[in-house]
Amino acid sequence: MDETQKALADRLFPAVKPPEELELRNIPPEQRRLHTETADLTVSSIYQYLANGKLKIPEFQRGYVWTRMQASRLLESLIIQCPIPVVYFSQDTNNDLMVIDGNQRLLSIKLFMNDAFQLEGLTTYPELNGQSWSTLDPRFRDHILNRTLRCITILRDTHPQIKFDVFERLNTGSVQLNSQELRHGINFGYLIEQLDELTKNEKWKKAVGIRVDKRMKGAELVLRFFALRYSRANYTKPLSSFLDQFSSTHKAAAPATVTVWSEDFTSTVDRAEHALGKLTFRLFEEDLNTVTAFNSALYDAEMIAFSETNNQIIIDKRYDPIELRSKIAILLKDERFSNSIKRATSDETSVAYRISTFKNFLDGYTNGI
């Protein structure tokens, strides 16, 4: 094949790296079973659960996108007793339920019962077009309230990774949810809320190059720091499964603990930004010009090292940033370190090496030497 043609094709149609596979085979066989409970809940019961917070639609779910006509046709289906697709819930540790499939249907019902819209586009009962919940004949309202929906709940004693796998199988919408969006749904709690809050840090946003984050990439990077900072000894690839496990284990972490972690994150970002400025989390040459945009593997090394260093010179910022950057540029040229942030970056040896090497560099740094 002509090399020029091949080079052009490689640029126009680059190979897409497949997503990391869930390591379900690492789970003991007896823990791979899915524990579920099936119930037929009345519309009235579901509405009450949504109203009192017993049933939640987590933030990761795509916003309400149904048209008024789609929502109206759903209500008409309830009236004529047309079967409605199964709704799936996930049970949390405190027995609360999260909607993992069916949020558009449930939100449509809730909105109509809150008088948020009038029926339109009905074909079986066009006489009801223009009616809201409050103007609907009480007999129709009672009929809707007494209709039942088949609900399948994935119980809390299901292994988190199995629950995550099922979550992905149900994720069949036009826009597939990514790993972090799924984690937000399965493991929603104080830790997940703090991830979202920390992504608003302006220094950090500038360093990682995130301007508009619609798919929770920032939250995943914050989670990545927490997981490697506080559970690095348990790291095994793939990274995605490691993050799943960490967020599951710590979803109910005490607010005081998460607050300490958050303060650590904020101070670490400040240290890294002071030391490297616009070069933070980027590869650069000895002339201090960047050669790449944000590098997530280098992010691991720098964040953990600046967080864990015991060098008081670094902690107190008693150094010349330009001199420090020049020394870091030399480290970035080291072949083994360079490989650890460019190739097979999720391998256990690569993760351990790049973090320990950068930390050792900071720990041993001395002004003017």
Rank of each mutant, 00 (worst) to 15 (best):
L182V: 12
S240P: 02
M303T: 13
I100V: 13
G121E: 09
R215F: 02
D320E: 06
P321E: 07
N187T: 05
G185R: 04
M98V: 08
V175Q: 14
D213T: 10
Q31T: 00
E23D: 14
R169V: 03
I144T: 08
S44D: 13
P255F: 09
Y353H: 12
R32A: 00
D157I: 00
L97S: 12
N234D: 15
K251F: 08
S248V: 00
R183G: 01
F117P: 07
Q194E: 14
D264S: 11
F89C: 12
I341P: 01
P19I: 14
P58I: 08
I84D: 07
N289H: 09
A275S: 07
Q31D: 08
S72F: 04
T268M: 10
W261A: 04
D157E: 10
Y299F: 15
I109T: 10
T158L: 00
Q48Y: 11
S231M: 14
N367I: 13
D165A: 14
M69P: 03
T93I: 15
S340V: 13
A256R: 08
D334T: 07
W204N: 02
E193G: 06
R150P: 01
S108C: 02
Q61I: 07
Q161C: 00
N52V: 06
V260N: 11
S45W: 06
I330F: 04
T135E: 04
E30S: 02
N295T: 03
L12M: 09
K200A: 13
I341W: 01
S179V: 04
F167G: 00
Q176S: 12
T172Y: 12
Y365A: 07
S179Q: 07
S267G: 03
E193I: 08
F361A: 07
F13K: 11
R343C: 10
E335A: 15
A329Y: 01
Q91W: 09
K333W: 07
T36L: 02
W261L: 04
L332V: 03
N311Q: 04
D320N: 13
F306V: 07
D287Q: 07
K317Y: 01
A116W: 09
Y49N: 10
P18L: 09
R215T: 05
P321H: 06
A352Q: 11
D196F: 09
T236A: 12
M303D: 05
I162P: 00
D334K: 11
Y64K: 06
L191V: 08
L177W: 03
S247D: 09
D101C: 11
V99P: 01
M303C: 06
A253E: 11
A233T: 15
R354K: 03
N26E: 10
E348M: 09
L50G: 04
Y47Q: 08
Q91H: 11
Y64L: 10
A344W: 13
I162R: 00
I330N: 03
A256S: 10
L136F: 05
N339E: 15
V258H: 06
K342M: 06
L182N: 05
A39T: 12
R156H: 14
L239Q: 05
N295E: 07
D244V: 05
R156G: 09
A297W: 08
G53L: 11
D287F: 04
P160G: 01
I144N: 04
E37T: 06
